[in-house]
């Protein structure tokens, strides 16, 4: 067995951050999430993988209510996600999300992108919000771009800004929805490096990604989804070297053999 990376040696506490209990979701007639049970502890790094259309994005989008589940219960940070707008707002304050297409606000500068939510949602004074934003922009290594607009940055830089923007709310949990899928190959590394350093600092993370190198290096659990179900989950080493389910084997052979 390969030596565990620094991130994998981080301790995982017993405190539960996310618990999904028999969650079901439908798009019209289509049963997109089928009986999902998942618990994420504080400090855990979870990678969710699976073929296209398997419901992985839908799964993590349910965690901050970008998608609504119809059955079962989801608790994030001890707060039940239901139709109560206040609960949703409270959860969104504590959960950061990074999207495939960055979703930066193009009409605001990088700095304004990062300070917007702290100022309006956390009611932080502007100077303090800017100081926090600069701290996280330095963390993702682009403080010098603070006064540019997103359109002037490369894809990799934009994605790092998106990570900084989420961090500015000082979230308890970070969700990554295929953060490197829309990037040019030479920019994937800079984003993954940022994510690794985040993991090394003990951030609780749920990542939908096809970057298996990242999963091996950082995750303490890999979840494989297919047709809306969790088919298999395991520690990364065991998951990659000794998959049990046939569908997992097929998937791994398809993404690794080329």
């Amino acid at each position: 067995m390969a030596e565990a990376s620094k991130a994998q040696k981080m301790s995982v506490s017993d405190e539960v951050v996310v618990s999904m209990d028999s969650v079901n979701k439908w798009y019209g007639q289509f049963h997109v999430l089928r009986d999902i049970n998942l618990t994420v502890n504080k400090g855990e790094r979870i990678v969710v993988c699976g073929p296209s259309g398997s419901g992985k994005s839908t799964l993590i989008r349910c965690l901050n209510r970008l998608e609504e589940h119809q059955d079962g219960s989801i608790n994030v940070h001890g707060i039940e996600l239901n139709n109560d707008v206040k609960n949703i707002d409270e959860i969104r304050r504590e959960v950061g999300m990074v999207f495939q297409h960055f979703n930066l606000f193009p009409h605001l500068t990088i700095l304004e992108n990062c300070t917007l939510a702290p100022i309006w949602v956390r009611k932080m004074p502007k100077a303090e919000a800017e100081a926090t934003a600069m701290k996280y922009l330095e963390r993702v290594k682009i403080p010098e771009q603070a006064h540019k607009y997103p359109g002037q940055l490369s894809g990799g830089q934009q994605q790092r800004v998106a990570i900084a923007r989420a961090l500015c709310m000082e979230p308890q949990l970070m969700l990554f929805d295929e953060p490197t899928s829309a990037l040019d190959p030479e920019m994937i590394k800079e984003v993954l490096d940022t994510m690794v350093s985040l993991a090394e600092d003990g951030m609780t993370m749920v990542c939908v990604t096809h970057e298996m190198g990242f999963a091996r290096k950082v995750a303490n659990r890999v979840i494989f989804m297919d047709e809306g179900q969790i088919v298999e989950q395991n520690e990364p080493e065991a998951f990659f070297s000794n998959p049990q389910n046939d569908r997992t084997k097929l998937f791994l052979s398809q993404i690794l053999d080329h």
Partner: peptide
């Protein structure tokens, strides 16, 4: 306006009017 902008705004916790 791209759907991603609505989602980006939602995800950072802005209210509808914000």
């Amino acid at each position: 306006i791209d759907k991603g902008q609505y989602e980006g705004a939602d995800a950072v916790g802005l209210s509808y009017w914000q």
